[in-house]
Amino acid sequence: MTLESAQSATLDPLGQVPAAIGAPAPRRSRAAVAWTVLGVALFLLLSAAVLAASAIANLRFDAAVAAHRDAVAEAETVGASTAAVEAEAASTAEIAASVLAAPDPLVDAAANAALTTVTAEFDALMASAPETEFAEPTRPLSRPIWFADLDRASDLLAAETERLTAQAAEADAYAADLAVADDAVTDSGVAYLDAIAPVAAAVEAANGSARNVERIEYRNSVEQLAGSTWGYDAAARIDAYVAAAAALQSTHAAEEAEKAGPLYDRRVEVEAYARSIAGGVLLEFDWAPIVIGYGENGSAGGTATWDTWEGGLSTITLSNSIAEQWGDPVMAALVTHEVGHAITSKCYDIVGEYANDNEPWAVAWAIGMGHTDANGNGEWLYGRPSDELIERSKACR
């Protein structure tokens, strides 16, 4: 073998015949190209899928955020309106409790029972108020990046929206029921106030011996209740009525205690007679053994004041001897004379010039009432009044 032949036949260290210098590189196989194309296609498809999923997740998240914000706004509106209804209801309940504290004898039993029932139902409804939490969630509403996180956030927001919507609906229904119940208590309360007047009249009649000032204050408190609307003012007027009734009853009891004793029944008769002819002027009575020096040895004495305040009122003081001798026409004439003084407050214009020098008027009034006995009507002490004055007095009844 020649050297040239030997060189061309030399093997590389691995026993391979080396490629000739300058020969072209082998081409890639078709399979490799196909796999490459497939890989790129799969990558593009996967990227598109991820982008699509992300876009959908973002849209879903945006919708969840918008729905949640709407739910929060609605919940806040419902919460505010419900709070207003609850505040009004609390006021109504407080007023009802205050009004119902009035003693039963001072109010109408049926109206009291009706208001008690609706108030108890009202209180029970308020106690059943739904527990709501309308505050924004503490979890952040920042937008996640990964679509799976976006989906989880959307689900959380959707659940929160559902909770808020359900609670708002429950609160709204409760507020509507509460408003209806509030109206029922208010209507019953107004009926309760309106029903007091007849009861108040009976209470006053049962306390006939009460002092004038307390009687006037009691009447004024009853007038203040007439036409009252439901509110704290009504509660205050009820309180004033109850206080005035207590004062009325207290002075009645005190006067009854003063009249007590063997002469009690006759004193009551004397007072009833005087009131029957006083033309509505309020009278209160004091009894004493001696009045202006009279009261012993068959004598009798009396005095009377007159005042135009509140339609007229008077305090008449009588000696015990009048009660002892009641039935004697002289005693009736004397009491009539004192009522003549008292009624000046009602007939001030008729009394005219005798308002200050009142004895002639009282004598004339007693005579005009048919008491002609000079020993009783005051004529023996003050002289006979003019016929003109006697006729004038007959216009005062």
Rank of each mutant, 00 (worst) to 15 (best):
I145V: 13
W361N: 07
Y192C: 04
L106T: 12
L14W: 14
Q7I: 10
S299C: 07
V281N: 00
E133R: 14
A87D: 09
K346D: 07
W380T: 13
I216P: 01
S81L: 05
G231W: 04
P262W: 01
G370R: 07
Y192R: 07
L334W: 02
W230P: 00
I390D: 10
L46C: 06
A83Q: 14
D328M: 09
I145M: 10
L150F: 03
G79Q: 00
E121S: 15
G301V: 01
V17D: 03
D12P: 02
L106S: 08
F147A: 05
A114S: 11
S321T: 09
A23R: 10
M1I: 05
N375E: 11
K346T: 04
E74M: 07
S8Q: 11
S29E: 03
A120R: 14
A288S: 10
T308A: 15
W287T: 01
A240M: 03
T10K: 06
W365D: 10
G352V: 11
A355P: 02
E76H: 04
L100A: 05
A195S: 14
A278Q: 00
I292K: 11
A71R: 02
A90K: 02
W380E: 11
I56Y: 06
A135L: 15
A110C: 08
T2C: 00
P385F: 02
R69D: 07
